[in-house]
Design a binder for these strands. Structure first.
Lengths: 168, 168
DNA sequence: CCGAATTTTCAAAATTTATTGAAAGTATAT
DNA sequence: ATATACTTTCAATAAATTTTGAAAATTCGG
């Protein structure tokens, strides 16, 4: 397979993959393109490579910057902004985990805390099932939260080594 | 907070949560409703509770069954089908992990295997960056794959205990 | 086998989400 | 200060996804 074709496949399937994870296609594709680009790219490079409009490109680059996955780079003597993606995949994964934990897991846990305190007689099976379900989710969610905290601080070598050993 | 209100909040935020994870709102809401229902429900119960159409209800129940999260239940002497959700959250999580691994991670790893074999001179930095990126993702993906395999087989008590100890 | 109850399908409609592109905004060099 | 290069915004449009509901198919008791 030629590089050009391989690149296209990578970008397109990274985009499709993203849509299963609540990330929009374009954002994932821009990320993919930057991941495999040895040098920083301009907005125009990205627009041209992916055939997308200026506005769309701009919005999604900014979103990637918000997620901490892409950085602005200023090349000396150049007026244009360049963009580059973190290439260390372990760092990328940790960053995504960190953001999603903050955006999704933590608010969910807060809600569950409130819902667990529902009024009513526990002998009513509707109340009991509700409280048990909420508690069960909360318990697992809190464990996940702690585990992810440590993971975010971990080094890849340490993480992979230990995790595998543990699971033998 | 009253049970009725708590239920509604739970269902609606479970639905919103689902949409961040590539699951459609209705599917997640039906799942939420069944999770907190002590007894199995019919399609009509679900339609009424969530105010959704028959077709929509039917489609999403079947999808939940495909995911292994909901089961058909036949009550003796009843013609209608009843549905119930697995209540053990750890089992639910394992089931979701299992399915997503099969549907998403495994195909991605297969693709990466192919893409890693791209033709071209490694001294070309475009080729090098591409191959390095693909290899990096593949390596981490394969580790995740193995780790999830063990997790899928693990018991919650064992899992939570060990994981926490390990991360201290 | 018939007919009523129930489930499933699927084309059309509604809704949600993503994309465009032109206009407005900003920064920089001279 | 002005012109120019570049970035951002956002209302309109397009595309993708979800939902509906009526018709078709299936199931099951008698």
């Amino acid at each position: 397979m030629k590089l050009t074709e391989a690149k296209q496949q990578f970008i397109s399937s990274w985009g499709a993959f993203g849509t299963h994870w609540g990330i929009n296609r374009t954002m994932a594709q821009i990320h993919a393109l930057l991941l495999i680009s040895p040098d920083p790219l301009t907005q125009d490079d990205i627009m041209e490579e992916l055939n997308i409009s200026r506005g769309n490109t701009n919005m999604n680059i900014r979103e990637l910057i918000n997620w901490g996955l892409v950085e602005r780079v200023l090349l000396s003597g150049e007026r244009k902004e360049y963009f580059t993606a973190e290439k260390d995949i372990w760092k990328v994964v940790k960053q995504i985990v960190k953001e999603r934990k903050k955006r999704e897991l933590e608010p969910m846990l807060q809600l569950l805390d409130k819902l667990e305190e529902v009024e009513g007689d526990k002998r009513d099976k509707h109340v009991k099932t509700f409280v048990d379900t909420v508690s069960g989710i909360k318990k697992l969610g809190k464990q996940a939260d702690k585990t992810l905290d440590v993971m975010i601080r971990a080094e890849e070598t340490w993480f992979v080594g230990n995790l595998l050993k543990m699971f033998k």
